[in-house]
Computed example of a mutant assay.
Amino acid sequence: METILSIRNLNKRYGRVHAVNDLSLDIQKGNVYGILGPNGSGKSTTLGIVLNVVNRSSGDYAWFDGKLPTHEALKKVGAIIERPNFYPYMSAQQNLELVCKIKGIGYHKVQEKLELVGLWERKDSKFRTFSLGMKQRLAIASALLNDPEILILDEPTNGLDPQGIRQIREIIQLIASQGTTILLASHLLDEVEKVCSHVLVLQYGKVLYSGTVAGMGSQQSYWELRSASLEALQTALAQYPDLSSITLEQDTVVVQAKSGLDAGLLNKFLSERGIYVHHLMERKRSLEQQFLTLTETKS
């Protein structure tokens, strides 16, 4: 699989603040990556470095397997790392045509991108009349004018209402379905979980997790059990090997195994001791639960 961006041992210091701390990451073509972390975790600094607007302290990065110098590679990148900035007295179409003129792109792309972000019917409306969500969608259209191989978005839904967040999410999913690689920085767990295939969790500039979203959720699955006697169930489970925790949550016993848990063997073990469960189900921890576990452990 083609590597769009490779980051190795990247560091950025601002005096005593280690904003990016030995970060390594590979962005593979066709995936949607989320950089997840609270404000101040190093997300925006990382994006600024790879977009050549922030100087790194040490480490390295390479676009497109290092086949192109950075200034040439960035011509194949679309990015929004600041608030949308267009001429307020010009229409949506006029603003995008100006971007086309600056970048040497044909005007025919304007209609295509405005339709993609759902703004073609407002093409003649002045930018100053747009809501924040519409301004953000216009910025996405602008970033897509050159048909980039990768789209980089820094907090694309920041400040938007629920409807605006949903619209941006749907646009990102549509762009990804068309084969564009996406790198998205966000502090919103729900946004990353619903949009991204891969996630990098940062805290204080350090990588706490790097991998698939599904893989992060499956790192710590747990089992729910219910039976007629919860006390007897807990007593029996205490004798079962490889359980790392047994807790009672209302009318449910929740267990976590040190390694994989075989439901059939567990059920057999309990029935041999006269305990019959009427509920036995594996659950996956949500991205939020995993994120909180990671950050609480490392803080």
Rank of each mutant, 00 (worst) to 15 (best):
G66R: 13
V117H: 09
A79W: 09
N9R: 11
E272Q: 14
L208C: 01
L243F: 06
Q136P: 04
I150K: 02
S229T: 05
L47V: 11
S259F: 07
A143D: 07
L230R: 02
A238W: 07
V277F: 01
L114H: 11
T46D: 10
G118E: 04
G260D: 14
Q94T: 14
S286Q: 01
T180N: 10
T247F: 07
V50N: 06
E296Y: 00
E121C: 13
Y61A: 04
R169S: 14
K284V: 00
R83Y: 13
A143I: 05
S125Y: 14
V213C: 01
Y222Q: 05
S44Q: 06
V32A: 06
L233W: 03
N21K: 12
R128A: 13
T212P: 00
I182R: 07
K109N: 15
Q250E: 13
G30K: 05
S221M: 10
R128S: 12
E97P: 04
H18G: 08
S24A: 10
E282G: 00
K126R: 15
T129W: 06
M90T: 11
G40P: 01
K194E: 05
Y87L: 15
R273W: 05
V207R: 01
K101D: 15
K43E: 05
S221Y: 07
L202A: 01
V54I: 14
D190S: 14
Q136D: 04
L230A: 06
K194N: 03
Q220M: 09
C196S: 05
S57I: 09
A79K: 07
Q289D: 13
S58Y: 03
T252I: 14
G15N: 11
M134T: 03
V50E: 04
L248W: 11
L292A: 00
M216D: 01
K101H: 15
M90R: 15
Q290A: 03
R169H: 13
H279W: 08
L248S: 09
W120S: 14
R283H: 11
S244N: 10
G30E: 10
L51G: 05
T129G: 03
E282V: 03
G179Q: 09
I152Y: 07
Y222D: 04
I165P: 02
V254Q: 12
W63C: 11
L233I: 03
A176M: 10
E155L: 15
L96K: 08
H198Y: 05
L132W: 08
V255E: 02
S245R: 12
P156K: 14
G42W: 02
L23G: 07
L116Q: 14
D26G: 09
I246W: 08
S259V: 10
K123S: 13
E282A: 09
T129Q: 09
A214V: 06
R169Q: 12
V253N: 02
H198S: 02
A236T: 07
Q163N: 14
Y33L: 06
T180S: 11
R137D: 02
Q234E: 14
K123Q: 14
T46Y: 04
Y33V: 03
